[in-house]
Design a protein around this nucleic acid. Structure first.
Lengths: 145, 145
DNA sequence: TCAAGAAAACGAATGGTTCTAATTTTGTGG
DNA sequence: CCACAAAATTAGAACCATTCGTTTTCTTGA
């Protein structure tokens, strides 16, 4: 009897070669429902769904899901890591210098590397990561008033 | 009598509104002579020039010189911070996924922000930071052999 | 030269992340 | 259905880069 609930998330995990645990399903759903969450926020979201989960387990699962390509890790300079569920579309990010808010920016090209370096110094480049730095609407109104 | 040696570095510091100390002069020269050095390497270079300097003093000076615009801080995801002396030309970086080597990539535009976001979400963007990820020549030959 | 204030030293702490080793759970083959 | 091996989870400690508070030293401008 395995037809009562839609096992989409679980199937994705299994399809990626990962074992299915309640914590991983909850984690994947939490990250997808959230908006560039940090580790602490993810842990809290996972606990809301499945009870107690250790922080280390969250780190481990984030590592595994990121390596499997189900999650993407972004790490703005000077901030702890954040995770997002949108993968595969090679999009970029705008980050607020004031509050650290992160928003997605679609990539015009879509495929990585979406930019070509003027001089690659012999490197074989596979990705161009773009971070736009600025001030978000909320912070700029707060500043000017 | 102040014409015996070229006081360029000291004048730059003073011009930026900073006090001139042996440690700061040595630090600025170390970073400029080096190639995207980390804090530990900078501290070691400063000590080679002026003797004992505490790590905290190095952090403090790096902070001050970065804020004054004499240095630029880059922080590749998953690595400690590195500093470079080339400022003002809004160039970008190629980073080796294997050994962490950093090389400069000139920006085609030169002025920041050199890219325009497809959708800025209302942010006022002042800089587009581009990091090209790949494998450096040394690491790719090492891998293939 | 002198006093004000900034910078450096010193010592310790903090936060995010990773490691180790032991235990539990999961998927699978008998 | 049961047992086994692989993988996941746990707890705890450790690690690293960075920061903080305080005292001492030094630069600077009057």
């Amino acid at each position: 009897m395995t037809a009562s609930r839609p096992p989409t998330t679980a199937e994705e995990l299994r399809g990626a070669g990962l074992r299915v645990t309640a914590a991983r399903v909850a984690l994947l759903e939490t990250v997808r429902a959230g908006d560039h969450l940090g580790v602490e926020a993810i842990a809290s979201g996972v606990r809301d769904r499945v009870g107690h989960v250790s922080l280390q387990a969250v780190y481990e699962a984030l590592h595994a899901l990121t390596a499997a390509g189900l999650l993407r890790r972004i790490e703005p300079a000077g901030s702890p890591a954040r995770f997002e569920g949108r993968v595969g579309d090679n999009h970029h990010h705008v980050i607020c210098r004031s509050c650290g808010a992160v928003a997605d920016v679609d990539c015009a090209r879509g495929d990585a590397p979406c930019l070509t370096a003027s001089d690659d110094h012999g490197f074989s480049i596979d990705e161009a990561e773009v971070i736009y730095w600025g001030v978000c609407p909320g912070c700029s109104t707060r500043r000017s008033t």
